[in-house]
Design a protein around this nucleic acid. Structure first.
Lengths: 211, 211
DNA sequence: TTGCCCGTGTGACAAATGTTACTGTGGCTA
DNA sequence: TAGCCACAGTAACATTTGTCACACGGGCAA
């Protein structure tokens, strides 16, 4: 068994052996560096990506370059949007940017329809992915629709901590502001209030989550 | 050919004859009255619904009973959420309320997995539904994330007009406020401004869209 | 008709958020 | 070391949105 097979099997444990085989023969391993933009709003989707390592940020672009965070993608996950785009040319509705260096498998669109029919484990993966992403997006809607900026910031920090698996968040106030579509000053103000309430501890270029 | 078969065929022209047959033998026709809540947040999904006639409103409930509109469903459409919920018990993330009296076909969940595999036209319908709903939700996110209330109101009115196919919108300011998660006074204020700009004409219980 | 409820309009004010401007501080590099 | 730059803190103010209070008028029912 090749090393790549082992990585694939470990990262996607629910895939059947036949599916793993198919992936190996039909797709290519690719590497992306932090900061790379893998998919851009308006681009045609030509393939889908299975992530083996690293982290991607999926966001919605505003007209003036705002970056509204939707969710993060990590090892064992795939971009929901690109999984379902039928055969005809479909434009991407979102932008995907690499947060941590990414190792991934790229699968041509043409195969996906076939796999949906022939591989039960692929079908289940696609359905599961779509459902969970939809739910995540609904939660995002809740936040912007029903909550004020202080709560949204708290939610954002917790989500970020969860995604990276640690309590130290290495982001500048400016970067956070961009993703919440507000301004740096507002973020600073709210973070300061959170610090007074003991929820976080602020350092230069780092926010330590205390909850 | 029964009358029901004809309605089904007309409303879902892409369904194959075999699929129509299966739907007829396995599902039940149901009727809902305006105001009925068909599916509620937190309820377990036991079946999916194909709409033959009428209109449904899909919205997200806030903690204090706010109703944040996501999209409308009409004849020929189905609730995306309920289409993909695998076999295990899945709770609904949204609430569906009848706007105009609805005639629908109810399909047990158990069949849907089977149909996905056996009926190409069902598979395509599900994929299409999911994709378009996802896109619609993304557009909603754009609106609340990037736009101020005046633009959101304008967007809302246009969407509503499009959904009902006419330029007269029979909603009270209060109802609109609920769906945009703001207050009646704000809606009144903004509508008045829109009237001054000539975009609408205001009547009692009716807003006439001039664009 | 009278009284009442609902929908609407509007002014005044409160609160949240966005904007501008300026300050300070740590770290890097010429 | 001096100068520069990115990041952070904060005051003051503008704007948007939410809230409260009250007035007006149409239509319906007693």
């Amino acid at each position: 068994m090749s090393e790549e097979t082992i990585i694939l099997k470990n990262t996607f444990p629910n895939f059947s052996n036949e599916l793993i085989q198919e992936i190996e023969t039909n797709s290519s391993f690719q590497y992306f560096k932090a900061g790379d933009v893998i998919m851009r709003t308006g681009q045609y989707i030509k393939s889908t990506i299975l992530i083996l390592k690293g982290q991607l940020k999926i966001y919605r672009e505003g007209e003036d370059g705002e970056e509204f965070l939707m969710y993060y993608l990590q090892a064992g996950q795939a971009c929901a949007i690109s999984l379902i785009c039928s055969t005809k040319d479909q434009k991407s509705q979102i932008t995907a940017k690499v947060v941590e260096d990414v190792e991934a498998v790229t699968i041509p669109l043409a195969l996906m329809d076939k796999w949906m029919m022939n591989h039960r484990s692929w079908y289940e993966f696609v359905i599961y992915t779509y459902r969970t992403r939809f739910e995540e997006v609904l939660e995002v809607i809740d936040n912007i629709a029903f909550r004020a900026m202080d709560e949204r910031l708290e939610f954002y920090l917790k989500r970020h901590a969860k995604a990276c698996g640690c309590k130290e968040i290495n982001l500048s106030h400016q970067e956070i502001a961009l993703e919440l579509n507000t301004s740096r000053e507002v973020v600073s103000r709210l973070l300061k209030k959170m610090e007074q309430r003991g929820l976080v501890q602020l350092h230069r270029n780092q926010i330590e989550l205390k909850i």
